[in-house]
Amino acid sequence: MDRRIALIICFVFGLVMFAQFFSDHPVAHRVNQDVLVEYVQIIFAFALIVGVVALVRNSIKQVSSGQDRPFRMVMLAGLVSMPILAIGWGIEAGSPFQWMFENVQAPMQSTVFALLAFFVASASYRGFRARSVPAAILLAAALIILLGRSLMIGPLAHVLPDIAEWIRNYPSMAARRAILIGIGLGSLTTSLRVIVGIERTWLGGEK
């Protein structure tokens, strides 16, 4: 019975939102506004609570069992302290919350991202090999694109950017478009299966 109610809600809202998308009637706009501003935001907030509770429970379990204890404790400290700072002193510029974001979170994220450059450099030496004809073609394309973006290629600056542009505009874009069309058709099919109740894995439990 529980599953049937969920399926009916999914079907009704799926159908209504699908239909209103193609309508310019004021009622359709009203439904769009109400569902998106009110319902979706409330559901999102509750989903967030479920996520946070699950994360905290798992982390506490792992801290007590000694698994990744220091990392889990740092994570929990962050999870607790940021809302406290936000609720206590607000999130405006100059607030402790913003200070933490600008001086702790942002530099840490940028650092991790910057480390990618070092891994790419190492991987380019050890892994990017012309072991076969397709690998050699990929390698040549990568070299041309890299050189085409560089500003230190001297006389090649008249030729390479054009070749790099051609690679982006034809072979690369053809592949990208094929992938996009595939994703679109896949999303459409999956959405229809969910709306009409064929796909039920999102309910959990049985298939």
């Binding site: 050189l147 560089s150 500003l151």
Partner: peptide
């Protein structure tokens, strides 16, 4: 831009060296 272009050339050099050694 100088840092980025230098890093690009450095990566290209590494790719070439890696392939030569391979």
């Amino acid at each position: 831009m100088l840092a980025q272009s230098s890093a690009h050339l450095y990566v290209i050099l590494l790719i070439i060296l890696g392939n030569v050694s391979y």
